[in-house]
Design a protein around this nucleic acid. Structure first.
Length: 231
DNA sequence: CTATGATCATGA
DNA sequence: TCATGATCATAG
């Protein structure tokens, strides 16, 4: 008789990168691989589809690259101040979906300062990881592209600031419930909740008021497309 | 509920 | 076809 070696899939852990150079080097190794290959190297199973695993690709890369923020309200790579976003690409190689940035802050009665805003911080340094997302390609066979580090240039930040200030003005004046995704050139506000019955505290013209469906800031595909062409 | 990670599903 | 509005999973 002998004892079999453990057959449990050992989940591998990746330590946090110590520099942006190290992080980009890891991205270079992932570029050209499939999601299935990356998952296998980590001992992870690939779901049949993303219908009930919508954040799976993002979580896969957090683990593969050694993101250390967990679910904390911090950039994915805390020490480096870098936020990571996967960028789903359609059949034509262009961004397929909008990119969620953060929740629209409730109870912001005071001064609205873009330079102190949460969204500006989150977008100050982003690692974009392009991934095939055409649903005709099985999830495990989708290829990863070359990731790149982005910091908004003056023009890009000015555009984002304009959108943000216009939208936040309305939020603070009590118009959050009426804001639709049609507003904003590059930044938009859309529902962000488990379902439509979720409510949180919003702002009325007089002050605080509840019963509003939570909303979040998203970057339109037209914006991330520009970054893709630039990067 | 709020934060993290996003994609789904349907109407225009 | 594509954007808007709706929804899914998980941690704390």
């Amino acid at each position: 008789m002998h004892f079999d070696k453990p057959i449990t899939c050992s989940k591998k852990t990746v330590t946090a990168p110590q520099s942006s150079t190290e992080l980009l080097a890891r991205c270079n190794e992932l570029a050209g691989k499939t999601l299935g290959q990356i998952a296998a190297s980590l001992g992870l199973a690939v779901p049949d589809n993303l219908q009930r695993h919508k954040g799976w690709v993002g979580a896969l890369f957090e683990q593969a690259l050694g993101a250390d923020a967990g679910s904390r309200a911090e950039p994915d790579f805390i020490g480096l101040g870098i936020e990571m976003k996967t960028l789903p690409l359609n059949k034509s190689g262009l961004p397929k979906e909008s990119t969620y940035v953060c929740t629209v802050s409730m109870q912001q009665n005071g001064a609205l300062d873009w330079h102190q805003s949460w969204i500006r911080r989150k977008l100050s340094c982003v690692l974009w990881v392009p991934v095939e997302a055409d649903h005709s390609i099985p999830l495990s066979e989708r290829y990863v592209g070359q990731a790149w580090l982005w910091q908004p240039n003056a023009a890009q930040e000015a555009q984002l600031q304009r959108d943000w200030e216009e939208l936040m003005d309305r939020v603070v004046l009590g118009g959050q419930a009426e804001i639709t995704a049609k507003e904003g050139e590059y930044l938009q506000i859309r529902p962000k909740a488990a379902h439509g019955r979720i409510v949180s505290t919003g702002i009325s013209a007089e002050g605080l008021k509840d019963k509003v469906n939570p909303k979040g800031f998203y970057l339109r595909p037209s914006f991330t497309r520009l970054l893709l062409e630039q990067g």
